[in-house]
Simulated scan of single mutants.
Amino acid sequence: MFNSPLPSANELPSSRQLVRSTAIAFAVAMGLLVTVVMPSEYAVDPTGLGRAMGLTQMGEIKISLAQEALADEAAAKNPVTASTPAPTVVAVAPPASAPAQQVAAAQPTKPAAPAGKSDETSLTLQPGEGREIKLEMRKGSVVTYAWSASGPVNHDTHGETYNAAQGDFHSYSKGRQVKGDKGELTALFDGTHGWFWRNRTSGNVTIVLSTAGDYLTVKK
């Protein structure tokens, strides 16, 4: 067996060299943390390089998927039990004339407009894709809505204030693997309020949204 000779004192790095190497390694690690790890994992991009390289968008997608997974897990643990609706008394009106019935049948069903404007917006989701449609609303304003999908989708009706931080939003309602929803949305604060859908099927899904009420703009 051959033993390697021990290095001499002159061959060993000095304390100054060790400190310098440690400082360089620390600076490189911090640079990678700020420019690569934080944008790609947490969507935090203090330098702006992460968004330029597409890493911040990756982090935003990861956060969105994590939030959706948590929502799916919570929904699976706490299934909502549908309550039996109260009986509704319907007043019988005199039969309408044949021409009036034909005109009424030809008109699509849309939400009644309490005030303001109305729009119909559509989008198509590819497999695994998630997109949203938002309305810019003032606090206290009311919108009625109805949307339908050509296939089952996961959805989250939510809103956020202007310049809200990443992940800071208020959820109004959620659903998994449904083909439609309708109701009334009252804005709790100034900001954007609307719907996020994700297609978990293997084919494209088209969504048509009808809105009517007191809102400023539609953002797609």
Rank of each mutant, 00 (worst) to 15 (best):
T56D: 08
T124N: 05
P79E: 08
K174Y: 04
M53W: 15
M53E: 03
H158S: 08
A212T: 06
A164Q: 05
V143Y: 09
K174G: 04
N3G: 02
A146L: 13
A43R: 07
W147M: 06
D72W: 03
S83N: 08
G183I: 06
R176D: 03
F2A: 13
H170I: 09
G140Q: 06
V89L: 14
E68K: 08
A27K: 02
Y162L: 12
K179G: 09
S64Y: 03
I61D: 06
N199Y: 07
G50T: 06
T161Q: 14
A212Q: 08
S118W: 01
F26D: 04
G59E: 12
A91H: 09
A100Y: 00
G151N: 09
E120I: 12
M58W: 14
S141D: 13
F26K: 01
A43T: 05
V44Y: 13
Q57C: 00
E129T: 01
Y42F: 15
A29K: 03
A105M: 12
P87F: 09
K220A: 13
F196D: 02
G50H: 05
A187F: 09
D119S: 13
V44G: 00
V143A: 10
T201D: 07
P94N: 14
E41F: 11
V37A: 15
D45W: 07
T88D: 02
V143P: 09
L209N: 07
S171T: 15
A165Y: 05
F169P: 00
Q57I: 03
I207A: 02
M1Y: 04
L70H: 03
T56M: 10
G140R: 06
N78C: 01
A187N: 12
V36Q: 10
K117M: 05
T192A: 11
S40P: 00
Q126T: 11
P5T: 07
A23G: 12
M137R: 11
Y162C: 00
V218S: 07
G50M: 05
A29F: 13
G183V: 06
A43M: 06
K62M: 09
M38S: 15
D181T: 02
V89D: 13
K220Y: 01
V89C: 00
